[in-house]
């Protein structure tokens, strides 16, 4: 007989779930340079990512977040918030959910969409930064079609994941 069943998720995910990094303290989003919000409470998943950006280099200096979400959403956004620090806006925009999942050592199939959420919120925050700074031309639109209305998740996201 096997003694202990392994955790539902990887150890890495468990670590980030137990002590999530960069949770936004307080409620004041005004002190950030970009704010992105995805999902909604009715669907059981919501994510907000806020970023601080060095205007000269376009490097992300801080990334914080809040979520109404499950263990995968919490852990994947925690790890994502670590990954983007020091990256340029452009580099950060192109981090794929797949890379996030890889960092976590894999995710169960039915949980992939949860990691997509953090990624989408980050992209929304980056776009928000561009809009706020009059760089509307830099705003990147998602090309793919939305296949999950409720999560605003696209077929593109799923493939990426």
């Amino acid at each position: 007989m096997l003694q202990a069943g392994e955790w539902a998720y990887t150890e890495k995910l468990k670590e980030h779930f137990m002590s999530p990094k960069n949770i936004m303290q307080g409620e004041n989003t005004d002190e950030f340079d970009g704010v992105g919000m995805e999902g909604n409470l009715q669907c059981g998943d919501q994510m907000m990512v806020v970023i601080k950006v060095d205007r000269d280099t376009e490097v992300i200096t801080d990334c914080q977040w809040k979520t109404y979400g499950c263990a995968s959403a919490i852990a994947s956004t925690s790890i994502l918030s670590e990954m983007v620090k020091g990256k340029t806006l452009d580099q950060a925009f192109h981090i794929s959910p797949k890379e996030v999942a890889q960092e976590l050592g894999g995710l169960p199939d039915n949980k992939i969409h949860c990691s997509v959420l953090g990624d989408k919120a980050l992209r929304a925050a980056i776009n928000n930064y561009y809009v706020r700074n009059g760089m509307d031309d830099k705003v990147k639109q998602e090309q793919a079609k939305t296949i999950c209305q409720c999560m605003s998740i696209t077929d593109h996201d799923i493939e990426e994941a």
Binding site: M1, L2, Q3, A4, G5, E6, W7, A8
Partner: peptide, 25 residues
């Protein structure tokens, strides 16, 4: 095996420790 396993009572569909133990077995 059966006698040993009698203490393992979790529902394999449960996400918590008891369930995961049953699932693994």
């Amino acid at each position: 095996e059966l006698i040993e396993a009698m203490g393992m009572f979790g529902n394999p569909s449960s996400m918590h420790a008891w369930g995961r133990e049953a699932r693994a077995n």
